[in-house]
Each structure stands twice: as C-alpha cells, then as structure tokens.
Design a protein around this nucleic acid. Structure first.
Lengths: 223, 223
DNA sequence: ATCTTCATTTTGATTAATCAAAATTGATCC
DNA sequence: GGATCAATTTTGATTAATCAAAATGAAGAT
C-alpha cells in the first residue's frame, strides 16, 4: 500500500528533479519543500528507497527510480485531471483548484479518473497549462520561452503559468494573462524590474521580472 | 481536526442508533460493524467522548451527543451527494458508487459539495433512495413499508433499497427493482420464503423474504 | 593538520490507530 | 455464596509520520 504521504514525497521529488534535471535532490531542499524537519525527510526517503521508489545516497541526495517516476506521473495525472474537472465541470475558480486537488488526488479511483478524462475529452493540459501525463505515464512537455526571455515585439500566446499560489493566480487573472491569451512584449527594463506587455492595441500592462519568468508562451502566427 | 477514522466511527454509530432507536450501542456491535478488535472500539469511543462527540458509559455502551449526530449527518450528506454525483454526472453504476464515496466523503470540501449540490438540482435522495441530509443537518426520513410488509395487490413504487452490497444491488438491478419502479405484490408464501411480484401485466418475479425486507415502497395512486 | 561550520543523520519521544492477549466485571446458575 | 461465562476493558506492542535535539561528517579556512 502506498500512503498519501509517500505519494506526496514522490510527487515533490519529481518536481524538484524537473527543476534541476540530472542532479540528486538534497535533503535540505526536500525537507524545505515538504515543510518538515530535516530528519523527517531523511527517514521518509529511506522508506521510499526500501519501497524501491527512490535511490538514496547518504549525504549525497535522492533520485527517483523509474518506478518512483511512474508513481509520480500517476499522481500528477490525477491531480491535473481533477483540477481541470473542478474548473470545467464544477465551475470552481482556477486559483482555488490546486489545494482541492491536493486532497482528491490521493483518493480518486482509476474508474472515476477514466470517467473524468472521457467527460473532459481527453485533455492534454490542466487549467494552468501544466501537461497531463497519460495513463501509461508519458508526458509531453515541450521547452518553452517565458515573458522574461521571449523575443520582443513578436506576438505570443500564453500557454502555462508556473505557480499555484492562489493570490498569484488571481493577480494573473486580473491582469488578463491566463493561458490562451495573446500578448506581445513591448519592451523590458531589467534595471527597473519591468516587462511591458501589449494585450491589444489599446490594452497594456506591466509585470515584474519574477512574474514574467513564471509565464510561459508560444510564438503565434503573426495575425 | 477530525480524522477520517473519527468520521467513520461517528457515521457507523449513527447508523447503529437508527437501527435501534433509543438504545445505547454496545462495544461488541460497534467493533463488529467497524471490523476492528473489541479493544480498539473501546479506545476509539473514549476518543470520541473526549472530543465531545459521544457519551460513553463503561460497560453500558455509547450514544452520540448532538454534536456527534451533526457530524454524522454532515458525513452522510457528503457520502450521498457524492454517490448521486458519481451516478448522474460521471455515469458510474449505482452498485459501485458506495465504495467510491466511502473514500471521497472525507475529502470533498464544502465548496465542492455546494457545487455538486447545485449541479444536481438540490436532490433529496441518493441513487439507493437514502435521504440526503441538508447542509444544516436535517434529514427527512419518513417511515416506509417494504415488500415483505406492504399490502398485497396494491400498486407500489420502490423508493429505497437498504443494502449497499454491490452484488445485491446488481441482483436488484437485474430483477428490474431499482428505485422509481412500480410493483405490486402478487402474493407471499412465508413458508417458502417467497414474495411474488408483478412488475407489469406480463412481467413477474420472485424474491426471498430477506431481500423483500430491504426494499422500501410507497403506495401509488391506483393507475 | 586541525578547526569550524553547516548540512545531514541519528536518537528518543509523540500521536493516531490498530492488534493480541491478559485482567476485570456483571450476570447467571447451581 | 461461590463458580462460570461472555462481554468489556486494560495492557503492552506495532506502524506511519512527525519533531527536537544531539551526534556525525565532509568541506573549506587557517
């Protein structure tokens, strides 16, 4: 039996590994991310290792095994399908579904998940633009530019927002920068921590660099 | 914080009290119902008592306090709304939703539950005909006859099935005896453990007494 | 080569839920 | 008034997850 706690650690490890590909995840990082004492992380990681979900090198860090990775992807699939379901079918706000899904992801059965998947038309991304792994554990996750790095003056479409914080998401929504929106970077002033965006001929807005970094875009046909 | 386990004990106590109104629930009964060792029931009941959810008389039994009753009703509300949701919106079979709901009932938030309630049009009964308590913890649960006790030869409508066992529910479904169906008891032969039912002028079927007892009905206008 | 520092690991406790098995209590039965 | 029996409670352990605080170790600093 894999507990909710194990699922959460595995999921977090996956996220940390994505952020720093190839590197081992250090206990300090993991403990901070999970908001537990360092010793707790150490002992849970040993549990994961015993369960064949992770490789652990004392004082060297952890890395998911491929079984661990598969489990992480299944949890992420549940999480993201549930999020989309909460927005599309139940009409919840995209800024609040992350926390709801955090609880539901450990409890929805495969049958329920399949029904949700079907009802939503086999979607590939959740409301934040995060990719939904397939049931066999594959993810399509293309490299993307963000509003702090994409070319200036070329039309882009926002495809993903890399932050689940409700306050941040609400801010993004107020700025009209949700996934799907078309924007063009008018200019950047790194010294002033500012990125000026044009949403339409009449509408523009400014973002800090940290925020701009979290908003991923895709170049669109210059229409 | 009230744990899933506490919610389950409280819910079970509520069910036991419904079955035997006025009486205290004995530890043996509770332990059997929860499928735990007797000592476990004793110690959990003390926990409930400390939390103000139950009154406990050593060697005398337990009874829910009104706070315990309120909690039980909230859990039942979650359970039954979720069941109906799984059938109506996700298209699951009524015979399998009980077990799914058993897990989900501890995890759906008030916001999600309100959305489900609204989406379903504020229903009053779940797929088995069990009444759904209101969010303020009221239940409308009229006394009912069953197929083993209702008058013979008078048309009835099936309104509730008192058993969550998937195999039993599938059997009921195969017999065409789901809630909403109209039936007339043709006759009963207690000695043969048989209740003969007429579903339509051409369709009839036979049921054992134990099964007949679990199917609640309401007299319909003789149409 | 030793010292210092800081991350990590260990150790010892704690909480919730559980079990097995021993102790207790009430009630019933000569 | 015991003796007996069944239900209940107690006791002592166990597992998962956690923390605080003490011990350890590896790396750089002198």
């Amino acid at each position: 039996m894999t507990t909710s706690t194990v699922e959460n650690y595995v999921k977090q490890l996956y996220v940390e590994q994505e952020a720093n590909p190839g590197e081992m995840v250090l206990m300090g990082r993991l403990a901070a991310a999970m908001e537990v004492a360092p010793g707790t992380a150490t002992s849970m990681v040993k549990t994961l290792a015993d369960a064949g979900l992770a490789d652990y090198q004392p004082r060297g860090g952890v890395r998911l095994t491929s079984r661990g990775q598969q489990l992480a992807l299944h949890v992420l699939r549940r999480h993201r399908l549930v999020e989309l379901f909460l927005v599309k079918i139940l009409g919840l706000d995209w800024s609040q579904v992350h926390d709801e899904a955090e609880a539901l992801e450990h409890v929805v059965s495969d049958i329920v998940l399949d029904r949700i998947d079907e009802l939503l038309g086999y979607p590939t991304v959740d409301p934040h633009g995060d990719p939904i792994p397939t049931s066999s554990g594959r993810v399509h996750d293309p490299k993307r530019m963000n509003l702090a790095s994409c070319p200036i003056g070329r039309p882009q479409r926002i495809v993903r927002v890399l932050d689940q914080n409700p306050a941040f998401l609400q801010f993004i929504e107020r700025q009209g920068l949700m996934p799907g929106t078309k924007v063009t970077v008018a200019d950047r002033e790194p010294a002033a921590d500012a990125v000026r965006l044009r949403l339409s001929p009449k509408r523009e807005t400014t973002l800090g660099l940290a925020a701009a970094n979290k908003i991923l875009v895709e170049a669109t046909a210059t229409a």
